[in-house]
Amino acid sequence: MDILSEAIADSTILHLKGADGQLLYDGPDRKPVRVHLHSPGSDAYAQIETKQTARILKRLDDNDGKRTAMSAEERLEQTAEDLADATIEWENLTLGDKTGRALSLGVYGNRKLGFIANQVSKHLADWGNSKGAPAAP
């Protein structure tokens, strides 16, 4: 068996669900609301993990090696930053006039939209979601 046949793609696509668990669609023609993400096997995702490790080490250094918990606001901000870094683009989703990274930070940094950040985190944690080429939009 050529083990490379099991390699995952560099990106993955998630069809988002609302807080009620129902798939989200936009408009009368029901376009799927999706987010395109860097997969956990990509170079871009490796950079996110490197940033996370650096933050942990800095926090330990700043606190003389003692483990300290983040505040709820720090955790929300850092999660939003990490997920924004993992996001390539949004499909059929708007938030005012925000685009690109500002849109990602606006979605992931809004506690009332936390169900989206949870879905994205869960999707990225399951490498099987990135198996093979991502589905075409």
Rank of each mutant, 00 (worst) to 15 (best):
1 M>N: 09
2 D>E: 15
2 D>P: 15
3 I>K: 14
4 L>P: 02
5 S>D: 15
5 S>A: 15
7 A>T: 12
8 I>D: 07
8 I>C: 12
10 D>G: 15
11 S>T: 13
11 S>D: 08
12 T>Y: 04
12 T>C: 11
12 T>D: 02
15 H>S: 00
15 H>K: 01
16 L>D: 00
17 K>F: 02
18 G>Q: 01
18 G>V: 01
19 A>I: 11
20 D>Q: 01
21 G>V: 05
22 Q>S: 11
23 L>G: 02
23 L>A: 12
25 Y>N: 03
25 Y>Q: 07
26 D>F: 13
28 P>T: 08
31 K>Q: 14
31 K>E: 12
37 L>S: 12
37 L>I: 11
37 L>Q: 02
38 H>M: 04
39 S>R: 10
40 P>L: 12
42 S>M: 11
44 A>C: 03
45 Y>C: 06
45 Y>E: 04
48 I>G: 08
50 T>R: 15
51 K>N: 14
51 K>W: 09
51 K>E: 10
53 T>Q: 15
59 R>D: 00
61 D>Q: 11
61 D>A: 14
63 N>M: 07
63 N>L: 06
65 G>V: 02
66 K>E: 05
73 E>V: 11
74 E>T: 09
74 E>P: 03
77 E>C: 05
77 E>Q: 13
77 E>G: 05
80 A>E: 04
81 E>Q: 07
81 E>C: 04
82 D>K: 08
83 L>P: 02
83 L>M: 02
84 A>S: 14
84 A>K: 06
85 D>W: 11
86 A>M: 01
87 T>P: 01
91 E>K: 09
98 K>F: 07
99 T>F: 10
99 T>A: 14
100 G>D: 14
102 A>M: 05
105 L>R: 12
108 Y>P: 00
108 Y>H: 11
109 G>A: 03
110 N>S: 11
110 N>Q: 08
111 R>Y: 13
112 K>R: 12
113 L>K: 06
115 F>L: 01
116 I>L: 13
116 I>R: 04
117 A>W: 06
117 A>D: 00
118 N>C: 05
120 V>R: 09
120 V>L: 07
126 D>E: 03
127 W>K: 15
128 G>E: 12
129 N>Y: 08
132 G>D: 00
132 G>A: 01
132 G>I: 05
134 P>S: 11
135 A>N: 05
136 A>Q: 10
